[in-house]
Amino acid sequence: MEHLDYELPSRPQPHRREPLLVGVVGSGNCELLLEGGPPADRCRISIKTSAHGFAPIWTAVVADFAARAAAGGLQIEINDVGATPAVVSLRLDQAIEAWEESANV
């Protein structure tokens, strides 16, 4: 299991809520856990992956995500279970969407 940790600049996420779990482990799906914590203009992302040697790819995936999404102030854990970059990118976008839809504020 490889652990990759990133802290990246991102637009502040205006909504607050309890931790949110998105996706299902298994069936090519990947599981994401979102929670508050980091400074408002920083996004922390940690990836646990069974496939070794793909750090440059995941670096590019999370950099693009942090640049396009309002993920500042969020800590995101990704448990990929062999998911492809396409699945992870889509799941990240869906996670931000779900966070905003079900936010308390």
Binding site: A51, F54, I57, G82, T84, P85, A86
Partner: peptide, 8 residues
Amino acid sequence: VETFREHM
């Protein structure tokens, strides 16, 4: 095609 197949 998906850009990556199984096992990256």
